[in-house]
Amino acid sequence: MANDFDTIKKNANSFIIEIHKFIRENFQVSIGDQKKYLDSVTKDSVKTGQAKLGSFIISVSDVLLDSMIIIVYTFLFLIYKEHFKLFLAKLIKKENHPALMDILSQIKVSINNYIVSLIIEMIVVAVLTSLGLWIIGIKYFILLGLITGILNLIPYIGITIAGIITVLASLTGSGEISVILGILIVNIIVQFIDNNLLVPLIINSKVEINAFVSIMGIIVGGAAAGISGMFLAIPLLAILKIIFDRIESLEPWGYLMGNHVPRKFAWRVRRTKTQE
């Protein structure tokens, strides 16, 4: 992409000219009037644009920093794993140690399942994106699909960054509006499949957390600790659910967090399927 910078610049200018022509043909506004309007708007929004650019740079740096913090968290947890186990063993009475070991073993299984489900989701998103970009004729479609799959692990912001990279890469081939629209459509379709099929079927089913609690956890995690909090929200919820399910006084909260189907509703579903 760096080597194709001149081509990107040329195609970006062609893309802007096509937008001007589209507005002139459909809204009867001359290109000169469009440029005058853009100049007046640009003069009034230079300071705002600079402020937004600064905020964007800070946001990107925060994302990179949070990503590094997640790696550090994981590394430290692995190093001090036995230390944390001994701490919990000292904290809890000896007669409750079997229950503690059961909770820790289930947490290990749940976190392993969560990591596997993330990898599966990443692969599926990468394959779907690569296939969509290949269909619309985008250069580097495999690499861009992989980048989208990896960045999709970062909630909300990741897919936006991947979309910008894909649009820039598409300008190495052509600057047609149809190509840009095709990229947007591919990203929207893949995100729809990811949010409505992959996440409920793969991730939520693995950690046994319902969608409502997952969304609330991501919102609270983002407000409390930014990107790292959003990323760690679901595994932390899975850990809490395992603890709640094995403590009698907290069991209702574990049930509330789970994706259990009420018996009456499940009976109706089975009855409907039998009738069909």
Results as ranks from 00 to 15, higher is better:
Met1His: 04
Ala2Phe: 09
Asp6Ile: 15
Asp6His: 12
Thr7Gly: 07
Asn11Val: 11
Ile16Phe: 08
Ile16Ala: 10
Glu18Lys: 14
Phe22His: 14
Glu25Ala: 14
Phe27Ile: 05
Val29Ala: 11
Val29His: 07
Ser30Met: 03
Gly32Ala: 15
Asp33Val: 13
Lys35Asp: 07
Lys35Ser: 12
Lys36Cys: 10
Tyr37Asp: 08
Thr42Tyr: 09
Thr42Asn: 11
Gly49Phe: 05
Gln50Gly: 14
Ala51Thr: 15
Ala51Ser: 15
Ala51Lys: 15
Leu53Phe: 09
Ser55Gln: 12
Phe56Tyr: 13
Ile58Met: 09
Val63Ser: 12
Leu64Glu: 01
Leu65Ile: 13
Ile69Gln: 05
Ile69Asp: 01
Val72His: 02
Tyr73Trp: 11
Leu76Asn: 05
Leu76Phe: 13
Leu78His: 12
Glu82Ile: 08
Lys85Glu: 10
Lys85Cys: 10
Leu86Phe: 10
Phe87Ser: 09
Leu88Trp: 08
Ala89Arg: 13
Ala89Met: 11
Ala89Val: 08
Asn96Arg: 12
Pro98Ala: 09
Pro98His: 06
Asp102Arg: 14
Ser105Val: 09
Lys108Phe: 06
Tyr114Cys: 04
Ile119Gly: 06
Ile120Gly: 01
Glu121Gln: 15
Met122Asn: 05
Met122Arg: 01
Ile123Pro: 00
Ile123Gln: 00
Val124Asp: 00
Val125Met: 01
Ala126His: 02
Leu128Pro: 01
Ser130Gly: 11
Leu131Lys: 03
Leu131Ile: 15
Leu131Cys: 12
Trp134Leu: 15
Ile135Pro: 01
Leu143Cys: 04
Leu151Thr: 07
Asn152Ala: 12
Asn152Arg: 09
Tyr156Met: 13
Ile157Tyr: 05
Thr160Phe: 14
Ala162Val: 03
Ala162His: 02
Gly163Arg: 03
Ile164Val: 15
Ile165Tyr: 01
Ser170Arg: 02
Leu171Thr: 03
Gly175Asn: 05
Glu176Leu: 12
Glu176Trp: 03
Val179Glu: 06
Ile180Leu: 12
Ile180Thr: 11
Ile183Trp: 03
Val186Pro: 01
Asn187Pro: 00
Ile188His: 08
Val190Leu: 03
Phe192Ala: 09
Asp194Val: 03
Leu197Ile: 14
Leu201Arg: 15
Ile202Arg: 00
Ile202Thr: 04
Ser205Cys: 05
Val207Phe: 03
Ala211Glu: 06
Met216Glu: 02
Ile219Glu: 00
Ile219Trp: 02
Gly222Arg: 04
Ala224Cys: 14
Gly226Asp: 04
Ile227Pro: 00
Ser228Gly: 12
Gly229Asp: 03
Phe231Lys: 02
Leu232Gly: 04
Leu232Lys: 05
Pro235Arg: 04
Leu236Gly: 09
Ala238Thr: 04
Ile239Leu: 03
Ile239Val: 15
Leu240Thr: 09
Asp245Gly: 04
Arg246Ile: 10
Ile247Gln: 01
Glu248Arg: 08
Ser249Pro: 02
Leu250Ala: 08
Glu251Gln: 15
Tyr255Pro: 00
Leu256Tyr: 05
Gly258Lys: 01
Pro262Ala: 07
Arg263Ala: 12
Lys264Gln: 08
Phe265Leu: 14
Phe265Lys: 11
Trp267Pro: 00
Trp267Asn: 13
Trp267Cys: 08
Arg268His: 12
Arg270Tyr: 09
Thr272Ala: 14
Lys273Asn: 11
Thr274Tyr: 12
Gln275Phe: 14
Gln275Tyr: 13
